Simulated scan of single mutants.
Amino acid sequence: MFESVIVALWAMLPAYVPNNAAVVVGGGRPIDGGRTIGGRRLLGDGKTWQGTIGGTLSGILTGVLLNLLAVGLPIDGLVPTFPLLALLGLAGGAMGGDIGASLVKRRLNRERGSPVPGLDQLDFVVGALICTPILAPGWFFDTFSPAVVLIVLVITPLLHLGLNVVAFRLGLKNEPY
């Protein structure tokens, strides 16, 4: 069980980093260009090209750094190394999941930053877990056993909420969830 927790956290780091990095590097032009559906913004000002690209690149860079760290450490052989397509699936999928959640929230008439429990904590995980097996199926199914997926689904909401509270207290987010 302990090994599955280590693998889950390690394998998901390239998906965990992008949304947090997007907050830091974001800004600029909104992805939706101000477009509306039914009088409501498609995504809103919080989803920008700069944040999406910066977040995705930060996730990819995280995976590259993890690949370098794994070599020679006691965890070498326990944790996976990341092929580029897996990193693109994890990081890009995480950002895509977050964008999809924003679209859903706008359709539910929720304002930017308003909570939708469950969706807010797992949107990026779902995006990563959908995109990665499409781009790197062999790596995904070798890495994400049912136990690892279950651990990811249980531990991610706790990590997400904890990091959001920290970002809120640092003034990087407007809400602590």
Rank of each mutant, 00 (worst) to 15 (best):
V149N: 06
L135M: 13
T156N: 12
G97R: 07
L88G: 06
V23W: 03
G46D: 04
P157F: 05
L65C: 14
A91S: 15
G33M: 09
P137F: 05
W10D: 06
L119E: 01
V154K: 09
V104W: 13
R107Y: 01
S114C: 04
F2D: 09
W49D: 02
R107S: 11
L158N: 02
L153C: 15
A101K: 10
D98F: 05
P80D: 01
V24L: 15
Y177G: 04
R112A: 14
V165N: 00
L73W: 13
L119N: 05
G97C: 10
F168E: 07
G100D: 06
K47P: 00
R41D: 12
G138W: 01
S102V: 08
R107M: 09
T52H: 08
A21W: 00
V71K: 15
D32L: 04
P146F: 09
A70T: 12
R35C: 00
V152N: 07
S58L: 14
V152M: 09
P115T: 01
I134C: 11
L85E: 13
V165K: 01
F144Y: 13
P176M: 05
L150S: 13
D142H: 12
L158I: 14
G113H: 01
K173N: 04
K173S: 00
P176W: 05
D123W: 00
L90T: 12
P176G: 02
L88H: 01
A136Q: 07
V126Y: 08
A101R: 05
L42T: 13
F140W: 03
I31H: 02
W139F: 08
E175P: 03
P14F: 10
M12C: 12
W49M: 02
F82N: 04
V25Q: 01
R29H: 08
T52N: 11
L161P: 00
N67D: 13
G127H: 09
E111I: 10
A91E: 05
I37W: 14
D120L: 04
R169A: 00
N164A: 04
P18D: 10
G63S: 10
F168L: 04
L87W: 05
Q50A: 14
K105E: 04
L135T: 11
G26K: 06
T62M: 15
F168M: 00
D32V: 08
G33W: 07
G138C: 00
V148W: 00
L65E: 02
F141W: 15
I75V: 15
L135D: 08
I75A: 13
G27E: 02
G77T: 06
